[in-house]
Design a protein around this nucleic acid. Sequence first.
DNA 1: CAGTATCCCATCAGATACTG
DNA 2: CAGTATCTGATGGGATACTG
Lengths: 134, 134
Amino acid sequence: MTSQCYKYLVVTNLVPDVHNPACPTRVVLDRIGDRWTSLVVLNLLDGPLRFTRLRAAIGGVAPKVLTQTLRAMERDGLLHRTVHAEVPPRVDYELTALGRSLSTPIQAITDWAEAHVTDVEAARAEYDAAREDR
Amino acid sequence: MTSQCYKYLVVTNLVPDVHNPACPTRVVLDRIGDRWTSLVVLNLLDGPLRFTRLRAAIGGVAPKVLTQTLRAMERDGLLHRTVHAEVPPRVDYELTALGRSLSTPIQAITDWAEAHVTDVEAARAEYDAAREDR
DNA sequence: CAGTATCCCATCAGATACTG
DNA sequence: CAGTATCTGATGGGATACTG
C-alpha cells in the first residue's frame, strides 16, 4: 500500500519505510506527474496570468480541471491567487519562489525527453513489431 | 484534449501544438509519474534483480502491477528482461543505458522534494487552517 | 470573467486466487 | 519462481451547461 520512500532509498539504501505516509518524492511526483501542473508552471514563468489567459495559453484544459489544478498548487504554496475587487472579476495567478523553483526538475524531465524520445519510440516500435510476428 | 507540447513551449514559446499526439515530455511524465517506475529505476541502479527480489526491494507492489510496470518499461527500452531456461524459472531485470540515464531527472525530482517538502507541508497546513476558520 | 455543478468514463492500482 | 486471471474500487480527467 505505502511505497518505499525515495529519500532513504537514495541516501542509504535502507529497507522500505512502509509506514511513511508522506514520502517527499512521492508528494512531488503526484503533483508534477498530473496532467496540467507542469504546464501551469512553465506558462507562468514569464509572469502572472489571469484565469482565461492561462487557460488559453495551456490549451485543451477544461475549466473545472484547471481550477482543481490551480487550487492544489495554491495549497502547496506553488502559486498565489489574487482576486481583484472589480467587475467583471479579475483573478491573477502568479508563481511563488517555490513554484518557480519547481521549473528546475521539470526542465530536467523536458531535457531528458527531448534527448531520448526517439530512442523510446524506436524501442516501442521494435517491441510491437516483435509481438506482431506471432 | 491534446495538450500543449512542452518542447515548443520551452524553446520558442509558441502556441499549443494541439494535434501533436506524442509530446516527448508528456510521454516521459506519463511514465515516471506512475506509481512504480521510478522506484524500479532506483532499485535496479546497482545491478540486475529477479522478479521476487525486485518486488521485495520495492515493497508493497502487487505482482500484477509490477509486471505491468516492467512490461511497459521493457517496451520503452528502459530495461532488459532475460529469461533463463531453468527450473524453477529465473528472470532477470536489468536497466539499459537508457534506463540508467533516467535516474538523472528522477534525481532532480528527489533533490527538489528533499529540499522543499517542508515548505510544501507548511503551505498546506496554513491553507487548511485558513479554511477551517469558517 | 472566473469559475461551479453535474454527469460520465477510462485508467490505475490493489486484493486475492490460481498456474506453467 | 514468475507470473496470470479476475474482480473491484478510487480517482483523474473530460464534456457540457450554468451562475455570481
